Simulated scan of single mutants.
Amino acid sequence: MREAMAEIAKDLHTEHMVINMGPSHPVTHGTVKFLVTLEGETIVDLDVEIGYLHRGFEKMCENSTWQQVMPYTDRLNYVSPLINNTGYALAVEKLLGIDVPERCKYLRVIACELSRLADHLTNVAAAGLELGAFTAFLYFVEARELVWDLIESLCGARVTVNYVRIGGLKNDLPERFEEKVRDVFREVRRLWKDVDKLLTKNRIFIDRMRGVGAISAEEAIAYGFTGPCLRACGVPYDVRKAQPYLVYDRMDFEVPIGETGDNFDKYLVRMEEMQQSMRIVEQALAQMPDGPINVRMPQVRMEPKEKIYTRIDSLIYHFKTVIEGIKPPPGEVYQAVEGGNGELGFYLVSDGSGKPVKCRVRPPCFALTAAMPRLVKGRLLADIVPTFDMINMIGGECDR
């Protein structure tokens, strides 16, 4: 019988089916297209096309003053914009050779970890929803909204925050912020436990995630993986530990790792990182000293309005900074921070003028998205969904 079926198969004329998945598709989370070659339901080949988002981030930055770049960084990873703000500000400050006050460093750590928490909550919520776990989605979106409430109380915005400044911050903590954090984290941890019970031992969720999208540590490094996707392969690389910045070297936190690099390990790593982020925020609030949040350099950080309105020297600095921009000395720097999806780096080149000559961003999502063909070839069409979810591609970062 088997031999007869083999003979019939030889005579059948079959062709691979090529389909477009995206760029306008609810699973692609933005303007990205998969050109999928199928044999039945099995993926024979997959080509990722990210060229649908043409915002020209780097060229816009090179035609703006150093301060005017800050709102653009919000739009890179719009799920964790405070980390983008901080990475860019640190890069410019390295170029200027300045160090921000201690209190500012702690506040930036708090802002970054709240952003990371919101990013992971969004990722796991969306992944659960697209595999049918609607309840898990509702729980984690509720948790994310609570975290966004904290961010809104901190800087007045929820998504495009524009909170960090070169040389400092927009404002200090609002009243009763620490008390609000305690209340929100108590509720987030309760919702975290509910989602953990709903998903981590759920037979359907495990079957859709375990063994899917697996990659070895060696291959992941070769592709340029960083962040949760690399740590899921068992590589404990975290910029906050490997190249400490701000006050992360004073924080006591763990770097969770996986074993197989599959989608289930990526999920587990992100779940544990949420707990670690809350732990870091609580430590930062407990350790944070009093003091200023901005450097006292009017040629870099604008002075308060009352000074600008009443002192001629402050008015002159304000005028020159707004019209000409700050002027870092000629040189080049690279500054990396740990973004929600991995190493987020800014490479800046200055010629001494008020605008960057080069503003290059190293987005963690770019390398992860490039590996999609490797992760799904030989799998079923339905496996694209959880694999792409766990990469957590953000279109704004991959803008080229």
Rank of each mutant, 00 (worst) to 15 (best):
H318W: 07
V235F: 01
R231F: 00
G40F: 02
V100F: 01
V141Q: 15
K307A: 05
E7I: 07
E175G: 08
D207Y: 03
C229E: 06
G168I: 03
R296Q: 12
R176G: 02
V159H: 08
D351A: 11
G234D: 06
L198W: 05
F225L: 03
M372W: 02
A214V: 02
I280K: 09
A111I: 01
C112T: 12
V376R: 07
K355I: 09
E303M: 15
D207T: 14
E219Y: 03
Q275D: 08
M209W: 01
G224D: 06
Q68W: 03
R186N: 09
W148T: 11
M209F: 05
P330T: 04
V124G: 01
R158I: 07
E272G: 03
I280R: 07
D47P: 01
V184G: 09
V159Y: 08
E113T: 05
E3H: 12
E49P: 02
S350R: 05
H318F: 10
L53I: 14
K327S: 05
G167A: 02
L380P: 01
V161F: 00
A143I: 09
I257K: 04
W66F: 15
N63A: 10
T86E: 01
V164R: 07
M1T: 12
P244E: 06
T73V: 12
T65E: 01
K377M: 09
M21S: 10
M393S: 13
M251K: 03
D11R: 15
F366C: 06
F57E: 09
V300K: 04
V361Q: 08
P364E: 04
A118N: 14
V79M: 13
A4Q: 13
R301Y: 00
E218D: 11
V361M: 14
L90T: 07
M70N: 09
S314D: 12
V269W: 02
G227T: 02
T135I: 11
K33F: 00
K10C: 08
A382I: 14
G168D: 02
I8L: 14
Y52T: 05
G261V: 00
K377N: 10
S277G: 11
F366D: 08
F137N: 13
L35R: 15
P256W: 03
A382S: 15
K170S: 05
V18S: 10
L96V: 09
M297Y: 04
M5V: 12
A136D: 12
